[in-house]
Amino acid sequence: MATGGRRGAAAAPLLVAVAALLLGAAGHLYPGEVCPGMDIRNNLTRLHELENCSVIEGHLQILLMFKTRPEDFRDLSFPKLIMITDYLLLFRVYGLESLKDLFPNLTVIRGSRLFFNYALVIFEMVHLKELGLYNLMNITRGSVRIEKNNELCYLATIDWSRILDSVEDNYIVLNKDDNEECGDICPGTAKGKTNCPATVINGQFVERCWTHSHCQKVCPTICKSHGCTAEGLCCHSECLGNCSQPDDPTKCVACRNFYLDGRCVETCPPPYYHFQDWRCVNFSFCQDLHHKCKNSRRQGCHQYVIHNNKCIPECPSGYTMNSSNLLCTPCLGPCPKVCHLLEGEKTIDSVTSAQELRGCTVINGSLIINIRGGNNLAAELEANLGLIEEISGYLKIRRSYALVSLSFFRKLRLIRGETLEIGNYSFYALDNQNLRQLWDWSKHNLTITQGKLFFHYNPKLCLSEIHKMEEVSGTKGRQERNDIALKTNGDQASCENELLKFSYIRTSFDKI
């Protein structure tokens, strides 16, 4: 039985969820670079991206490699990797027998973001014989899940209580170790020597080791999670996991709180800001991140802002960003909400898709409305799209047979046209069989910064309504002859009103 693990408890099935942008060198404390989270699957090609990484700022997932063999891993080693800020997950990587050479110096898994409450997941690794993470000293947050690894031993010899604050939620089941077939031998045991430290858990006094050649490092209890030197002297209180010299914040392997210019500090002093819960960055760093993602459509890219001495992905609820200094300031009234469309555009074809934009005031991208039916549609669209004030790209209304009016965009005031449909149009209306009105132009103002209007096959939309939009939106004169079809717009509506004058002759039985 794995020490510190839980057996036999019912657990939810383990679901495996399925960018080499360097964020800056980590400095003297770390020998390499800070790398983003990685999802490495199918083959070993991307694994080489770990070569210079000291910190993975995010998670590391290595999974679904069915053609790899043990010899493929023999020359692979990433000794610079010290810390993973989120979680480490391995799933069905064939041929991998140990992690001792792959990650010989991995010391800390912070667990800032977890995989279903777990910071370390080893699942269905069919050839893994031992973990071998002999320098792993601290899992700051989260638990361990090690399950269905039929060859995995050296679990009962690990004292997880020396690595985690609590072992109650560890789930370590259905491994070879369960069948008591392992016969784990710690260093020196074969020669009758006791080389590794022994600890007591559940009444068992057991030597602690990761492999037959690597003991588990056990520091004096007084050192807590700070770690200790090879001689057993406690590291500085700002260290986490390990250090090369005692009581020196510049000799830590990793930091308990924050890293700044080669030393570990309790908090980031001005003019620095907390970033990702582990390091200090200056304003320029946060500003660069903001600008890199301002026009990016890459998933996970955030326009970072500053709030409460932190550089964070977005302002919290009730705050909006001051564009001059990136500071989050309290909103006066309802907060603006910028919604970034991942692929640059979004099609609204149902109430469900409209709900995804609920509360958005600025759309960074283009909207395509293609709704053919739905219950209580006008009210639903207004509830979900009615706060949109600005669209950076274009607005396209296409084959939306259920629409009679666009009044559900009740606050839309600006279409920038930074991206144009077919390279020309910022407003595009095609084949809307029941569209009769755009907006009530006596109450609604709309500016279209650039781009043209396109109207074709809107049989109940009168040309007068379209011409009014040209005047109000500032697009009059931009359109070419064929942009607004004269014969297919309003051709099934009563669009022309003329005053009919009647004269009559009164007659009676005795007068003409």
Results as ranks from 00 to 15, higher is better:
Thr107Met: 05
Thr45Gln: 03
Tyr304Ala: 08
Phe103Pro: 00
Pro70Cys: 08
Gln216Cys: 00
Cys53Leu: 00
Ala198Lys: 11
Pro220Asn: 14
Asn43Val: 06
Cys328Thr: 01
Asp86Cys: 15
Cys196Pro: 01
Met321Trp: 15
Arg279Phe: 01
Asp178Cys: 02
Asp165Cys: 05
Cys223Gln: 00
Ser244Arg: 14
Ile201Lys: 04
Glu207His: 14
Gln216His: 03
Pro270Gln: 08
Asn105Ile: 01
Gly203Met: 13
Val121Ala: 08
Ser77Met: 05
Leu133Lys: 00
Asn257Lys: 12
Cys335Arg: 02
Asn149Arg: 00
Ala156Val: 11
Glu71Pro: 12
Tyr304Trp: 14
Asn257Thr: 07
Glu124Ser: 05
His236Ile: 03
Lys251Arg: 14
Asn195Asp: 14
Asp288Ile: 03
Gly300Pro: 11
Gly95Gln: 14
Thr329Cys: 04
Thr68Leu: 11
Ala119Gly: 14
Glu124Arg: 02
Tyr30Asp: 06
Arg297Ala: 10
Cys293Ile: 14
Tyr154Pro: 01
Gln299Gly: 14
Ser143Gly: 12
Leu50Glu: 01
Arg162Gln: 11
Gly188Tyr: 08
His226Leu: 09
Asn105Ala: 12
Leu63Ile: 04
His28Ile: 06
Pro271Arg: 13
Lys100Tyr: 10
Ala198Cys: 07
Asp159Lys: 00
Thr157Asp: 01
Cys255Pro: 00
Asp248Ile: 05
Thr329Ile: 11
Val281Met: 04
Asn295Ala: 11
Gly203Ala: 09
Pro336Tyr: 13
Glu180Pro: 08
Leu164Met: 06
Cys234Pro: 01
Asn170Ser: 05
Arg256Asp: 06
Cys235Asp: 01
Thr229Lys: 10
Cys331Met: 04
Ser296Glu: 10
Asp75Gln: 07
Asn175Met: 03
Phe283Ala: 02
Tyr30Leu: 09
Trp160Thr: 00
Leu326Gln: 14
Ser166Tyr: 09
Glu238Met: 07
Tyr304Phe: 14
Phe66Gln: 02
Tyr154Ser: 02
Cys252Pro: 00
Asn295Glu: 07
Gly37Tyr: 10
Ile40Pro: 00
Ala119Phe: 01
Ile62Leu: 14
Asn242Trp: 07
Phe205Arg: 03
Asp165Val: 05
Asp169Pro: 12
Cys215Asp: 03
Ala119Tyr: 00
Gly318Ala: 09
Arg69His: 10
Cys186Gly: 01
Tyr87Val: 02
Glu124Lys: 02
Pro330Met: 13
Pro334Leu: 12
Cys286Thr: 05
Thr229Pro: 11
Leu131Pro: 01
Gly192Arg: 05
Gln216Phe: 03
Glu207Ser: 09
Glu181Leu: 05
Glu124His: 05
Leu155Phe: 02
Pro197Asn: 00
Ser284Glu: 08
Asp178Ser: 05
Val144Gln: 01
Asp277Tyr: 14
Phe205Asp: 01
Pro336Leu: 10
Val34Met: 14
Tyr154Thr: 02
Leu240Glu: 06
Ser54Ala: 05
Ile122Trp: 00
Arg41Cys: 10
Cys209Lys: 01
Lys129His: 03
Thr320Phe: 07
Leu88Cys: 07
Ile201Thr: 05
Pro79Thr: 09
Pro269Val: 08
Glu151Arg: 06
His212Cys: 06
Val200Ser: 15
Met321His: 08
Ser98Asp: 14
Arg145Cys: 03
Leu96Lys: 00
Leu29Pro: 11
Leu106Trp: 01
Lys224Ile: 10
Leu89Thr: 05
Cys280Gly: 01
Val121Gly: 02
Tyr171Ala: 13
Arg263Phe: 07
Val34Asn: 04
Leu44Pro: 05
Val305Tyr: 03
Cys311Glu: 00
Gln245Ile: 15
Asp261Cys: 05
Cys234Trp: 00
Glu97Met: 02
Arg298Leu: 13
Gly192Gln: 14
Gln245Asn: 14
Ile122Leu: 13
Ser213Asp: 15
Ala230Ile: 13
Leu136Asp: 00
Val34Trp: 15
